[in-house]
Design a protein around this nucleic acid. Structure first.
Lengths: 221, 221
DNA sequence: GCCTGTGAAGCTATTCACAGCT
DNA sequence: AGCTGTGAATAGCTTCACAGGC
């Protein structure tokens, strides 16, 4: 069996982006594409695209470039779980509900199979078709459903305990929306998605753009 | 006047993280901190912390390290707008509401001063204290309030038009939650926060963690 | 001793540039 | 001609290692 050629986080992020862009293209009836065209859409360079695709193992032809459909297939084989992947959500507040509707709406390969919330008023409900359990049933439900990936949308104060419990329950991937850094054991991948830090970054660069808008072209290159 | 020493996006992201961590520390009564301690919290290296702080222009003392309070001040002078910064939000769906409550709750330096939604049933309401306008009033309100940064939480199909209108209205920084890449004119900074792509990344690395959990220590280093 | 600030080294990621194909 | 795939070169980021200070 092949061992994966160790793809960096940045490359994985771009591959996921390429797949999304290619999906749009396919729905517009596009059959094939060249690296420089895909690069323009992804705001990268043609060489970058080609190098990224080396990791995928799909080869295009110099004559017609890459087949949109085949490339999506190759990306999906690399990126996706063989079956539809079940995901857990902890915290059914405003953000949690937004996530439920987000992943319920689109025909994505992810389905949020279980949600958890400490509020007894929410336990037992089904939000966007997803059942809400009490936090005491975390381990049990995760094991029963065979869930490996979880999203955390609880208040900052509860994030550390939530993440700990998830790891204990056997979760190996966590997307954490709470604005705190938490410790995870080895063998668990955690990613932070902190909206207010993102906004800070945007505000900072918006200001520096304003100051130096002449030199922008250099940056954009 | 000093020109900013051109700080990279990665550094800005880490500086924002340091500030958050320092804020937690300060509320726990911590007065000073060494680079290696801050590094441990941020999961980076001590050298990285020191190098990042060079960009800030604040200097610690070898004896006591950095003053938590002063460092927060220095970071804030660099990262923040002099005044509380007003932000616009377009799209008051599930996600939009989550954002409004997120930024209303915390005593952040950002206040969402105006929200926009095409649904006439929402126009005229105040959600979390933020007034909701119709899209036709975008330019007028943004100009009147002096808003420079906007968050976009509209469906994918409307994102391109929304972003275009925001740029026309004079916005220079955009945080886009819609899962599409859109063109912006020079002088506008845009950042994408795509939850399903983040989830894809987490799922991918969760799987590779599982396969190679022996070698993790090398990665964690 | 143990700390900070920083030049220099080391690494990673990206781009260049060209052979090979159609 | 114009494309892909890829070794080689470059740019960018991170760590090392040490001078200087308490």
């Amino acid at each position: 069996m092949f061992s994966l050629p160790v793809i960096s986080e940045k490359t994985v992020a771009r591959l996921a982006l390429y797949r999304r862009l290619l999906g749009d293209l396919l729905s517009q009836g596009r059959r094939s594409i060249y690296s420089h065209e895909l690069a323009a859409l992804a705001k990268g360079s043609a060489a970058q695209v080609r190098r990224d695709l080396m990791a995928v193992g799909y080869e295009g032809s110099p004559a017609r470039g890459y087949s949109v459909e085949d490339l999506i297939g190759a990306l999906s084989r690399l990126l996706d779980h063989p079956a539809t992947q079940k995901v857990a959500l902890v915290g059914v507040g405003n953000l949690g509900r937004a996530l439920l509707s987000y992943f319920a709406g689109r025909g994505s390969q992810y389905s949020v199979a279980a949600a958890f919330d400490a509020d007894p008023g929410k336990v037992g409900l089904a939000v966007n078709g997803c059942p809400v359990y009490g936090p005491d049933r975390l381990a049990e439900v995760i094991e029963r459903e065979g869930i490996e990936v979880a999203m955390v949308a609880v208040p900052a104060g509860e994030a550390a305990r939530t993440v700990h419990d998830l790891c204990t329950a056997g979760i190996t991937g966590i997307l954490n929306f709470a604005p705190v850094r938490v410790w995870v054991p080895e063998g668990v991948y955690i990613e932070y998605l902190d909206m207010s830090m993102s906004l800070e970054r945007v505000a900072f660069f918006a200001r520096s753009k304003r100051r130096t808008s002449q030199q922008d072209s250099a940056l954009a290159k």
